[in-house]
Design a protein around this nucleic acid. Structure first.
Length: 135
DNA sequence: TTTCTGACA
DNA sequence: TGTCAGCA
């Protein structure tokens, strides 16, 4: 599916991502330093995050809230979903993996969009970009 | 106006 | 992590 191309398309700048994830720019930049995400850059060196980046950020946030440190987060993220096969093993990893589904992400994005405070111009542009993901 | 990097608390 | 400075 060419869905992956859309999920990896660099679409939003720092400001949008901070609203979507509720993380601070400081945290996001730090996570990038740690190699947890690799957002694209504009010619002006501004970060441009893709859906995948936002997804990863949300997972990082989720993990951090569970008290997992950077090292632990790296462990999970470098483990491209094995969730199916592996018979139960009450690992912290499995525990963390569980609560962030794609549906959760979409639901959260919708909620965030509706809450975006009045800034007409940009908001419309953003909704236009995201709308196709909510078909 | 927004984001970037680096640095200090 | 928060925040400030000095640039693009």
């Amino acid at each position: 599916m060419r869905d992956s191309i859309r999920r990896n398309m660099p679409l939003f700048p720092m400001g949008i991502v901070t609203k979507l994830t509720e993380l601070t720019p400081r945290q996001i930049r730090y996570y990038e330093e740690q190699g947890l995400i690799k957002p694209a850059r504009t010619k002006g060196n501004q970060r441009l995050f893709s859906f995948n980046d936002v997804d990863r950020l949300l997972e990082i946030k989720s993990l951090m809230e569970k008290g997992v440190n950077i090292a632990g987060v790296k462990e999970v993220l470098n483990r491209p979903k094995i969730t199916h096969l592996q018979p139960v093993q009450p690992s912290l990893e499995a525990e963390a993996r569980r609560d962030l589904t794609e549906e959760d992400l979409h639901r959260l994005l919708k909620r965030q969009l509706n809450e975006l405070p009045g800034r007409p111009g940009q908001q419309h542009l953003i909704q236009g970009e995201l709308s196709r993901f909510f078909h």
